[in-house]
Amino acid sequence: MPVSFLDTLGEAVTRRLAARSSRRGVLGRVGAAIAVAPAFPLLPVRRADAAPATPAPTLTDFERRAQSTDPTKCNYWRHCAIDGVLCGCCGGGIHTCPPGTEPSPVSWIGTCRNPDDGRSYVIAYRDCCGRNICAAPKSCGCNTADREMPIYRPQASNDIIWCFGTASTAYHCSTAAIIGQAG
């Protein structure tokens, strides 16, 4: 059976390698490479690690602390610009008025970021009107202010009692209904 060209080449290379290198020499070179490698950070992940420890924030204070599980807390993500008592603490819900009260047909508008999907949504903060203010625990009384403006920009002010056009202008509590995706 004739010996193939590839077999002949493989044998020649292997014999030459064996003739020119010792096992100790190979071990020494590999060891040196391992020892010296950390001095040459080549991969991008190493360079990122060497960057400043705290990258510039891209969220507001509210957005950093926002959660998406408990809508009866001030740090629930839709409450990024709410001023008042949460209707969810008063017999209503996130977009629902307690019995016997009436939602305001107009409202102020906020833009809040949902931490679950990273998207921003337009929120209508409609008041529920017609009862005296809901005396819920203090933890249900919120006053957050992302993108909130003074009363000379009323459409973005959460200090105005928005019970316009309701049977009574008495303020009871506040809701936060999603009315669209922002941007």
């Binding site: 924030p57 507001t60 204070d61 509210f62 006053n143 202010a145 992302d146 909130e148």
Partner: peptide
């Protein structure tokens, strides 16, 4: 704080 903390 960040901007928009005017009521803090």
């Amino acid at each position: 704080g960040t901007f928009w903390t005017h009521k803090d």
